[in-house]
Nucleic acid binder design. Structure first.
Length: 119
DNA sequence: GGAATGACATTTA
DNA sequence: CTAAATGCCATTC
């Protein structure tokens, strides 16, 4: 069974239902699938949605914050640097570190091994 | 409907 | 290699 690492399935459904933008819904759906201890990138998410709107992905995550349900801190930049976070980059680093993601010089270490591949 | 905005990415200096 | 400029595109105003 597919379970969501940081969010109850029903809760996610509610959030998605509440969201009127299909693009944002898709972003949330994908990001919610990233398990703890893994990361993805804005580019990968965008590509998965069949678009090149990397920025719009970050925007979607920035405006609506559901930190308790959607693990937006697991989305980093393509160059493996951390990227932004609505509650501050330091918080984002802290969260990642606590999940086993090592960070050095502002970048995710051992990135290739930590990268989550969408099925 | 058009302009501005941005948690990005790629190219160029 | 670092930094700036240029391109992207969905959302918002």
């Amino acid at each position: 069974m597919s379970r969501y690492p940081t969010c109850e399935n029903n809760r996610l459904k509610t959030i998605l239902k509440d969201e009127k933008s299909s693009f944002t819904r898709d972003v949330y759906t994908l990001v919610s699938k990233v398990p703890a201890g893994r990361v993805t990138t804005y580019k990968i998410v965008a590509k998965r949605l069949g678009t090149k709107s990397y920025r719009a992905v970050g925007n979607a995550l920035n405006r609506n914050q559901h930190p308790d349900c959607i693990p937006c801190h697991r989305v980093v930049r393509s160059d493996t640097s951390i990227g932004g976070y609505a509650f501050g980059e330091e918080k984002k680093k802290r969260l990642l570190t606590s999940e086993g993601i090592m960070i050095g010089c502002g970048k995710v270490l051992d990135f290739k091994r930590k990268l989550f591949i969408f099925k």
